Simulated scan of single mutants.
Amino acid sequence: MATHLITGAGSGIGAAVARRLHARGDDLVLLARDAGRAKELAGEFPGARTLVGDLADPDRLSWAFSHQTLPDRLDSLLHIAGVVDLGRIGDLTPKTWRLQLDVNLVAPAELTRHFLPQLRLERGHVLFVNSGAGLNAHAEWGAYAASKHGLKALADSLRWEEKPNGVRVTSVYPGRTASPMQVKVHQQEGKEYDASKWIDVESVATTVLTALDLPRDAEVTDLTVRPGG
């Protein structure tokens, strides 16, 4: 039975992945931003453990974890949480930049640092749910794309560094996915939202599990998922 630490399990892709892993009997450790959210996640996923830590404040993650019991072993660390706030470069404030960089890039780096010892012991897997914006940047996506381009660099560097320790590293780049984040994006774009046009979260979850379940003789490094039809 594998143990997975998941960020973003409360909605969208993260919730879909957590449901699939929970249904097959794997152990889950779910990161929540506060105690209230942790209680909600524990109710949604009976038997799962929770950790409290705010990804928007990565400087305090170490302090937060020092007051909690961390898992002794981990087979995977799944970075799925993320935030997006669109805007033209000429209009974006430092606060907007920092939030997206902290949640989407600095916090994943800090979480990885904390849990690498457990992952090395199990020859585990670090998986980053990135974005199509991690490969291409378009108008008004500058801050978000910068955070996701940085996340790609983090994953690529980590892969080289941890290869001798047997830790596998995967980046998944979904296109537009039918999720609460996509609803927000459409609101910011002033467009009507139609979930049927975009990737179902279950399809992205299937992609994530495919990478996790690949036999040890191979490693998926990068997977791009695009809306079909």
Rank of each mutant, 00 (worst) to 15 (best):
M1T: 07
A2S: 06
A2W: 01
T3L: 01
I13Q: 03
A16R: 10
V17A: 08
R33A: 09
A38Y: 01
K39Q: 14
E40K: 12
L41W: 09
A42S: 13
E44D: 13
F45G: 03
F45C: 10
G47T: 03
R49P: 02
D54E: 15
L55Q: 12
R60N: 15
R60I: 03
L61K: 11
A64I: 02
A64H: 03
P71V: 04
D72T: 04
D72Q: 13
I80M: 11
I80F: 12
G82D: 09
V83E: 14
D85M: 05
L86S: 04
L86M: 14
I89G: 09
D91C: 04
K95Q: 15
K95F: 06
T96D: 10
T96W: 01
W97I: 04
D102T: 00
N104V: 11
L105T: 12
P108V: 09
P108H: 12
L111W: 05
R113P: 07
F115C: 05
L116M: 02
L121W: 13
E122C: 13
G124D: 11
L127C: 03
F128E: 10
A139K: 10
G142R: 01
A143E: 04
A143T: 07
Y144F: 15
A145C: 10
A145M: 06
A146P: 13
A146H: 08
S147A: 04
G150D: 09
A155Y: 06
W160H: 09
E162S: 01
N165W: 13
R168F: 08
V169A: 05
T170S: 04
S171N: 10
G175T: 13
S179C: 10
M181W: 14
Q182F: 06
V183F: 01
V183Q: 14
K184P: 01
H186N: 15
Q187L: 15
Q187I: 08
S196K: 13
T207F: 02
T207Q: 11
V208N: 01
A211T: 02
L212F: 07
D213H: 03
L214G: 01
R216I: 09
E219T: 15
D222V: 00
L223W: 12
V225K: 13
R226W: 12
G228C: 07
G229Q: 14
G229I: 11
